[in-house]
Computed example of a mutant assay.
Amino acid sequence: MFELDRSAILEHPRLRFLTDLVPVHEHLDNIEKFIRICFEEQGWRVAQAGRVVALRATDQDRLSSAFKASLYLGKYNDMANRDRFLRSMVAAGHSYEPIRGETVLFLYIGVAKPVYDHLITYTVGRPTRIAGGQRANVPWGFELPVEARHPEEYEEELERIREVIRLAKQERTEQMQAARAKLPVGYVMPPFLLEFSEEALIKHVFRQRLFERGAQGATVEVVSDMLKACLAIDEEKWTFLIEYHGPHIQQWQKAMRTLRKERLSLRQLAEMENLSPEEALDADLYDLLMATVGKLPPSMWDRMR
């Protein structure tokens, strides 16, 4: 039976919840109850990672993509072959049509507005967006930036959120749609839903926000939770897709561009790693390339840390 990991949300070190104004615990109880009724009891495999819950992955047991990949390849006598798409299409660099229409529905709890803004930039392959917090629902609190050096400087932001709730919900002097203009950027949105096609996840969302360097810290954390939730649902599929789209791809591209431009010899690569030519001959060539011409410069966020 599915149970929300409340500690991953309520005890997050950068989150400040306004539990005195918002019945957060009651809301979480209800969300947990209806995840069971609406998803788990209907046969969907639900997985939580941190502040993200994967409610529904449509390619259950990879049978939908198995059928579509078999039809694509004309293999009618074995249409439940779960490995065909991964090993005969992904590995060969062929079409991703079998998972283009397969989606994962994510519920985000305790996530601030900047991360939401980063995720809704993906419109292709995102069929669902349910963000009640962009209407009349009250914010749940405030999230300190990952890069914050003086957390005490952000206490006034919580008071700004309290003032918005007071104006809109307690005194009713302003509509929430108007009062929310006073909210700080980092307010914690009420739970929201985003759904992505699996192709969009692996080729765009995970690549740009996780595999490539430079994404904002909180976004990296939440997108990492999304990937962990996918792995919990189908570890083999997502491990295989990461192999063909993961963070090492950027290093490969840099290594090949550098080698093409510089025309380096094995001796020169060895010198970069302080190896003798003899040692280089016995070294793992892949590791040597990644440590030299494939080494990436630090991102802006790395420099700030």
Score class of each variant (00 low, 15 high):
residue 278 E to F: 09
residue 104 V to H: 03
residue 281 L to E: 15
residue 73 L to E: 09
residue 258 T to C: 11
residue 144 L to H: 06
residue 113 K to N: 13
residue 261 K to F: 07
residue 20 D to M: 04
residue 46 V to F: 02
residue 70 S to Y: 13
residue 289 L to G: 06
residue 241 L to R: 06
residue 251 Q to I: 02
residue 167 L to F: 04
residue 290 M to S: 03
residue 235 E to C: 07
residue 278 E to L: 12
residue 235 E to R: 15
residue 119 L to T: 03
residue 34 F to V: 09
residue 192 F to C: 01
residue 249 I to M: 09
residue 85 F to S: 12
residue 235 E to M: 04
residue 66 A to S: 11
residue 250 Q to H: 02
residue 207 R to C: 00
residue 262 E to H: 09
residue 89 M to E: 12
residue 132 G to H: 01
residue 253 Q to N: 07
residue 184 P to E: 09
residue 230 C to E: 11
residue 92 A to H: 13
residue 222 V to K: 02
residue 86 L to H: 12
residue 18 L to R: 04
residue 176 M to N: 07
residue 59 D to V: 01
residue 249 I to Y: 00
residue 220 V to D: 03
residue 286 Y to P: 00
residue 17 F to A: 05
residue 44 W to S: 02
residue 73 L to D: 12
residue 48 Q to V: 05
residue 104 V to E: 00
residue 19 T to E: 15
residue 275 L to Y: 10
residue 272 M to Q: 04
residue 187 Y to V: 00
residue 51 R to W: 05
residue 253 Q to C: 03
residue 98 P to E: 03
residue 109 I to Y: 08
residue 259 L to D: 04
residue 182 K to D: 04
residue 167 L to S: 05
residue 167 L to W: 07
residue 265 S to R: 07
residue 120 I to L: 09
residue 304 M to N: 02
residue 77 N to D: 15
residue 115 V to Y: 05
residue 232 A to P: 07
residue 265 S to N: 06
residue 283 A to S: 11
residue 115 V to M: 04
residue 8 A to M: 08
residue 21 L to M: 14
residue 264 L to S: 12
residue 242 I to Y: 11
residue 304 M to T: 06
residue 218 A to K: 09
residue 227 L to W: 15
residue 28 L to M: 11
residue 147 E to K: 10
residue 176 M to V: 01
residue 51 R to A: 14
residue 273 E to V: 08
residue 209 R to A: 03
residue 56 R to L: 13
residue 270 A to W: 04
residue 102 E to K: 04
residue 275 L to K: 11
residue 158 L to Q: 03
residue 229 A to R: 08
residue 238 W to S: 05
residue 288 L to F: 05
residue 177 Q to G: 01
residue 246 G to T: 00
residue 180 R to T: 03
residue 189 M to K: 04
residue 87 R to F: 15
residue 249 I to D: 00
residue 300 M to F: 14
residue 170 Q to M: 13
residue 271 E to A: 14
residue 2 F to N: 11
residue 142 F to W: 03
residue 259 L to K: 03
residue 133 G to H: 02
residue 14 R to I: 01
residue 51 R to H: 05
residue 153 E to W: 14
residue 216 Q to D: 12
residue 59 D to S: 13
residue 232 A to Y: 11
